[in-house]
Simulated assay, not measured.
Amino acid sequence: MPMVCNACGWELAFNSPEYFAYHEKQSLLKKLYSEANSLTTDYLQRLINFMEVEILKTGGSEGFQEFVGASSVMLEVFSKIRKVAPTDLPVLILGESGTGKELTALAIHERSLRKDKPFITINCAAIPEGLLEAELFGYERGAFTGAYASKKGKFECAGGGTIFLDEIGDMPLSLQSKLLRFLQDRVIERIGAIGGKKVDVRLIAATNRDLGSAIAEGRFRNDLYYRLNAFTISLPPVRERGEDKVILARHFLNRFCREMGLTKTFTGEAIEAVRAYPWPGNVREMINKIRRAIVMAEANSISQQDLDLAAQQTMDVSKDTGLRDAIEKIEVQKIKETLNTCGNNISRAARLLGVSRQSLYNYKKKYGI
């Protein structure tokens, strides 16, 4: 055990090659403490926010500026992105709505050899079945009524780059077979075309559905699943990211305040509410609540009420309730309140909840609302 100075408490390891670095660090820490001791609580909170997000880069692993998190589950996600990005493997991203599936796909593309080529996104749940094939694979002039000119599909537009198929669990069975053929021979066929065309494109797919159940129910092809599942990245919901919830909230608060030219901080109560709330809408819901809170807060401090995280939303569950039951109870309560507020307008309610319209329909079906 090294000797310690009785006056200052510093180690007296003079022969250690690291001594001078240690001495310099301790001197700077002492100065920092002296300066911080004279600051108000508000300025100290700003300093902590700045250190966490801007200096320590707690808001994301290096090279992942748009990702926020330092928990083990998120570090594992960063590691998987680094490993799969340089390859041409198809990737399947799994996670609840609002967890950052498109951001993950973009991170893979930007770290791949295709980064200078197009990154094309298409949501399979947002386009009617009759139009989705034309959007993906294109069509020839005269292929159907209204096809007055030939049109490239998304696969052709993404040539040399990456195509991201979001909500692939909602893709119709008829199109799943055509996608499977593309994965096998890398050839696409426009509607109405006589032959196919070779296309060099990397496929990344994502879904918030349980594909295992979809396969069992005959709604998703087993062979397509195994083609897509060459490499899987599972994104954890915000409620399972521990202290990352607070880091996320501070990251978005600082980012939006900079955009608006404001300076605001969270109160202690607001931080505790962020920790306790299960965030059923995940990151998307957090972004919406923080944007709203910045507008609603009359002072420089953002309260629990500004965030619209009432005490009953975060803690109104019995002590004997399991975690899953507690989360479901809060989700049902929040969805019902929002639907009532919006007069059952699904689009508006989905925006307020920070989820997609399809996800809200899924929640309603799940809970019988």
Rank of each mutant, 00 (worst) to 15 (best):
G9V: 10
L12G: 09
A13E: 11
F20T: 15
A21T: 07
L29V: 03
T40P: 09
T41L: 12
Q45M: 14
V53N: 14
G59E: 06
G59A: 09
F64G: 02
G69H: 04
S71G: 09
V73G: 06
E76N: 15
R82K: 15
K83S: 15
V84C: 01
A85W: 08
T87S: 15
P90N: 05
S97Y: 04
G98H: 03
G98M: 11
E102K: 09
S112E: 10
K115W: 02
D116E: 15
I122C: 10
N123M: 12
A125Y: 14
P128Y: 06
E129T: 12
G130K: 08
E133C: 11
R141F: 01
S150I: 08
K154N: 13
L173C: 10
L175T: 07
I188F: 03
I191R: 11
G192W: 02
A193S: 14
K198P: 13
V201C: 05
A214W: 00
E217C: 01
D223P: 08
L224F: 08
Y226F: 10
F231C: 01
V238P: 04
V246Q: 09
R250G: 02
R250T: 06
L253H: 07
N254F: 05
E259T: 08
G261Y: 05
G261M: 05
T265E: 11
I271P: 07
N288T: 05
I290W: 04
S301I: 07
Q305T: 03
A310S: 10
Q312V: 14
S318P: 00
D325A: 09
I327E: 15
E328D: 01
C342H: 09
N345M: 05
R348W: 07
A349L: 12
A349R: 01
L353T: 00
L353F: 00
L353K: 00
K364S: 12
